[in-house]
C-alpha cells in the first residue's frame, strides 16, 4: 500500500486537520507521503516528517500562491499517475473538498467524504462515518484505486511520531488549460476584533431563526445578562447579519464552552463539528424535527421571539440586576 496526504497550509503553518490525517495514514501505512503545494512553502514541508510522513513532495511555484483548487488537482493528479498511490487522503476544508472531488472526476476514483476514521480490515481500507444527522453509523469501502478519502473536520488529532524531518522532493508544476482560468482577486486573512468566542464559558448562539440582523440585539442582551458571548452560524454570517469572527463550525471556530444555547439554529453537521464538545447544550427551535434536538441536553420546541425576552428577564431577575 502507499498513501498520499494533502497537507494544507495557511500563513506558513501546516493545518491541524491535515496533520491529523497524516498521523492516521502513517499509523496504517509506513509508505505514507505528504504533498505541500503553494509558493514559498519549501520550508514548512519537512516538518511533516514529525507526524509520520516518510517523504514530502513539494510543488513550489508562484502560480500556486493562491489557494485555488484546480491547480492543486493538477499537481496531485500528476503525482498519482506517476507514483500510483493507492490512497489519497484529505482533511475537510472548503479548498480540500473541491480538490478531492475534482480529483475523483479526473481519475474516476472513488471518494468517500465526511469520514470520522479509517482502518484496515483484512487488508482492505474501510472508512467510518455517520449519516443522516449522525443517526446511523456507516462503514464504507472503495472499488479500485486510488481510494480518495475526505475526513470530517476535527475528526483526527495530529500525533507526533517521534521521527524527525522528512526528505523533501521538489516536483514541477504544469497547469492544465482550464485550471489557471479562475484567479484570486482577494484572499481571506483572519482579522481579530473584540474578544474571541473561543474563550467564553457561555455562548449564546443565534441562527437564521432569529429572522434578521435585528434579532441579535435581544440576544446580546441575554448574553450580557448571563455573562456570556454571542456566537453565530454560517447562514447568518453569509447573510451579513453578524461578523465572521463569531461563527462556530467547520469554516468558523471550534468551541467547547460550559454552556451553549442555540436560538433558531438547525444544528447542521458543519455547525455541530464546531460545538459538539460543549459541556451542556440547550436548543430552542420551532421545528420539532430540527437535528439540533438529537444532540441537545435540553431542547425547547418554541419561538425564539417569545423565549429570548422572557429568559433575559428571568436571568436578570435571578442575578438581581
Amino acid at each position: 500500500m502507499s498513501t498520499l496526504v494533502f497537507l494544507e497550509h495557511h500563513e506558513g503553518t501546516l493545518q491541524k486537520g491535515s496533520l491529523g490525517a497524516l498521523s492516521k495514514a502513517a499509523s496504517l501505512d509506513p509508505d505514507t507521503a505528504g504533498v505541500v503545494i503553494g509558493s514559498g512553502v519549501a520550508d514548512i514541508a519537512a516538518q511533516a516528517g514529525r507526524y509520520g510522513a516518510a517523504r514530502v513532495f513539494v510543488a513550489d511555484d508562484e502560480q500556486l500562491a493562491a489557494p485555488l483548487p484546480q491547480p492543486r488537482i493538477d499537481v496531485i493528479e500528476a503525482l498519482v499517475r506517476e507514483h500510483g498511490f493507492d490512497n489519497v487522503l484529505f482533511a475537510s476544508s472548503v479548498l480540500a473538498s473541491d480538490i478531492a472531488a475534482g480529483l475523483s472526476g479526473r481519475l474516476d476514483a472513488g471518494l468517500n467524504w465526511d469520514l470520522n476514521d479509517v482502518s484496515t480490515q483484512d487488508g482492505e481500507l474501510v472508512g467510518s462515518t455517520t449519516a443522516l444527522e449522525d443517526t446511523v453509523l456507516v462503514e464504507v469501502g472503495w472499488v479500485g484505486t486510488p481510494r480518495i478519502a475526505l475526513f470530517r473536520s476535527g475528526a483526527l488529532e495530529p500525533s507526533e511520531s517521534g521521527g524527525g524531518d522528512a526528505p523533501v522532493e521538489n516536483i514541477g508544476y504544469a497547469p492544465a488549460e482550464h485550471s489557471a482560468k479562475a484567479v484570486m482577486v482577494e484572499q481571506a486573512h483572519e482579522e481579530q476584533t473584540g474578544p474571541s468566542i473561543e474563550e467564553a464559558d457561555i455562548l449564546v448562539t443565534g441562527g437564521r431563526g432569529l429572522g434578521g440582523p435585528e434579532g441579535f440585539k435581544p440576544l446580546e442582551e441575554l448574553a450580557a445578562a448571563m455573562g456570556g458571548a454571542v456566537a453565530s452560524t454560517r447562514a447568518v454570517v453569509d447573510s451579513n447579519w453578524y461578523p465572521y469572527q463569531t461563527q462556530i463550525g467547520q469554516t468558523g471556530k471550534t468551541v467547547a464552552p460550559k454552556l451553549y444555547i442555540g436560538f433558531g439554529v438547525s444544528g447542521a453537521i458543519q455547525h455541530k463539528v464546531g460545538m459538539q464538545s460543549s459541556q451542556t447544550i440547550v436548543a430552542i427551535n420551532k421545528d420539532p424535527n430540527a437535528p439540533i434536538f438529537t444532540f441537545a441536553d435540553f431542547g425547547v420546541v418554541g419561538d425564539v421571539n417569545d423565549i429570548v425576552p422572557k429568559l433575559t428577564a428571568l436571568v436578570k431577575e435571578r442575578r438581581g440586576s
Binding site: P288, F298, V300, V301, D306, I307, L311
Partner: peptide, 15 residues
Amino acid sequence: NVKIEDDGSGAEKIL
C-alpha cells in the same frame, strides 16, 4: 436528550 414543547413556560424551564 430532553425535549419539551413551549407552552408559555419554556423560558422558566430553561432557567
